[in-house]
């Protein structure tokens, strides 16, 4: 019973304090502008405790935009490994979801899910800020449903 209460408090803390680090794997900057827009006064996701952090060491969520190119593959893996556990990944924009329309490019590997595991997909070219906030809400729902908290 006691352990259960501690788990509940931990889950409450984790779902209310998502710190995001942002990485562009070779996109056109369209999704980046929309992602940054959710931290502006108009959308202000600090209401939910979501903050943008510069260092991957401080982050809980990796927000990836753009199709993964061959050159950026190693950098993406480095950034992913630098985030301390537990970590989650959000793919923002159709490019990050599947690589389209660059899926058969000579230097493109494809979507982000070919390199790192992804929790939430947010399609759109670019997705509206509301859609990105909805994606974060889905991630919070998923974290609340997770059974083993470690």
């Amino acid at each position: 019973m006691k352990a259960k209460l501690a788990d509940k408090i931990l889950k409450w803390a984790r779902t209310r304090s998502l710190w995001v680090t942002h990485f562009n794997t070779g996109g056109c900057n369209g999704c980046d502008i929309e992602l940054v827009a959710i931290f502006t006064p108009r959308y202000d996701v600090e209401r939910f405790g979501i903050m943008l952090k510069g260092s991957p060491r401080h982050a809980d969520v990796l927000a990836v935009t753009g199709p993964v190119t061959r050159q950026v593959r190693d950098r993406l893996l480095t950034i992913y490994e630098q985030i301390p556990e537990p970590k989650h990944v959000i793919a923002i924009g159709t490019c990050a979801v599947s690589g389209a329309p660059f899926w058969d490019g000579y230097n493109v590997i494809g979507g982000v899910d070919k390199i790192v595991p992804i929790d939430v997909y947010v399609p759109g070219c670019p997705p509206r800020p509301e859609a990105i906030i909805y994606g974060f809400k889905k991630l919070i729902k998923k974290m609340e449903a997770e059974e083993d908290i470690e």
């Binding site: 803390a13 209310r16 304090s17 006064p41 202000d44 209401r47 405790g49």
Partner: peptide, 23 residues
């Protein structure tokens, strides 16, 4: 900055720093 700041964690977001700390 014409924003709201933390809002939903506790009353008016007053528990936000504690949630960050526990996490």
């Amino acid at each position: 900055q014409n924003r709201l700041g933390p809002t939903y964690t506790g009353y008016m977001g007053i528990l936000q720093p504690i949630a960050d700390f526990i996490k």
